[in-house]
Amino acid sequence: MTNYLYAVGAALLLANAGVGAWRILRGPTSADRMLAAEMITTSAIAVLLLLSIISDQSALVDVALLFALLAAVAMANFVTRTWTLLRDDKDTREEAGHD
């Protein structure tokens, strides 16, 4: 019974990630899209933890751990290297230029 509930929760969280994919499609700025990707990461972490309980595989917790660690790097990368002021157009932010 508990496993059944966990499986329903995992499916719901996956649908939640689908809502995040819709936000990636809509935008409107690159920061929105990046946050949507992070939201999908968080959903995927929760799904992995639930799956690890359902299927009794502790290796999935490691995968979730990697996702959690690397999401921080992706975000740091976005703010320092993508969301930058380019030399060519110092007045406009990248978010205005790229979308």
Binding site: L14, A17, G20, A21, I24, L25, G27, S30, R33, M34, A36, A37, I40, T41, A44, V47, L48, L51, Q57, A59, L60, D62, V63, L66, F67, A74, T82, H98, D99
Partner: peptide, 30 residues
């Protein structure tokens, strides 16, 4: 949009890891 394509690609990798988990291949998921 280029940025949108990159973010979609990153999300694709996340779901791909979940697929490997469903296929019982935790090594590849890792």
């Amino acid at each position: 949009r280029r940025f949108s394509a990159v973010v979609n690609f990153m999300a694709f990798y996340l779901l791909m890891a979940l697929v490997w988990v469903r296929l019982d291949a935790p090594d590849i998921a890792l």
